[in-house]
Amino acid sequence: MSSIAQASSPTLSTALNWWNRLLTLLPLGFIAWLALQLSEHPAIAKTGLSALTLAMFAGMFAGNTLPRGWLTPLASGMQVARHHMLRLGVALYGLRLTFDAIVALGLAGVLIPLAMLVSTLLLGTWIGVKLLGLERREALVVSAGSAVCGAAAAIAMASVVKTDNRQTAVAVATVVLFGTVGMVLYPYLFDLAVGHMHMAVSERTFGIFTGATLHEVAQVIASGKMVSDATADAAVVAKMVRVLALGPLLLIMALWTRTSERKQGLDTGAAGWSGLLRSVPWFALGFVAVMAINSAGMVPHAWKPGLIALDNWLLATAMLAIGLQTRLIDLVRTGRAPMILAGMLFVFLIAGGAALCWFAA
Rank of each mutant, 00 (worst) to 15 (best):
S8I: 08
S9F: 11
P10Y: 09
P10Q: 06
T11Y: 10
L16G: 03
L16C: 04
L16W: 09
L23N: 08
T24R: 09
L25A: 11
L26M: 14
L26R: 10
L26I: 15
A32L: 02
L34N: 06
L36D: 11
L38E: 09
S39Q: 14
S39D: 15
E40F: 10
H41C: 12
T47C: 12
L49S: 10
A51F: 04
L52M: 06
F61W: 12
N64G: 11
L66I: 09
R68H: 11
W70C: 07
W70E: 09
L71N: 07
L71Y: 03
L71T: 09
T72L: 13
T72S: 13
L74W: 02
A75F: 10
G77K: 07
L86Q: 02
G89S: 01
V90N: 03
A91E: 00
L92V: 01
D100V: 09
A101Y: 08
A104Q: 13
A108Y: 00
I112E: 01
V118G: 05
T120M: 04
L122E: 02
T125I: 07
G128S: 07
K130C: 12
L132W: 15
G133V: 08
L134V: 06
V141K: 02
S143Q: 10
S146C: 15
S146Q: 05
A151P: 00
A152L: 02
V161F: 07
T163W: 05
D164W: 02
R166A: 12
Q167I: 08
Q167F: 02
T174I: 03
V175M: 05
L177A: 10
V181F: 13
V181R: 06
G182I: 07
L185Q: 07
Y188G: 06
L189Q: 04
L189M: 13
V194Q: 06
G195H: 07
M197L: 15
H198D: 15
M199A: 12
G207A: 12
G207Q: 10
F209A: 15
T210A: 12
T213A: 13
T213Y: 00
L214W: 00
I221D: 05
K225D: 13
K225C: 08
M226W: 06
T231Y: 05
V237Q: 01
R242D: 05
A245W: 04
L246N: 02
P248G: 02
L249E: 01
L251V: 11
L251G: 08
A254Q: 11
L266A: 09
A270R: 08
W273L: 10
S274D: 06
S274L: 11
G275E: 12
G275F: 05
L277I: 11
R278K: 14
A289T: 03
V290E: 03
M291G: 00
I293Y: 00
N294S: 10
S295E: 00
G306S: 13
G306Q: 11
L307H: 08
N312D: 15
N312C: 04
L314A: 06
T317P: 00
T317D: 11
L320Y: 14
I322G: 07
G323M: 04
R327H: 14
R327E: 08
R327T: 09
I329S: 14
P338W: 00
M339D: 00
L341F: 00
G343L: 00
M344C: 10
L345V: 07
A354I: 07
A361T: 15
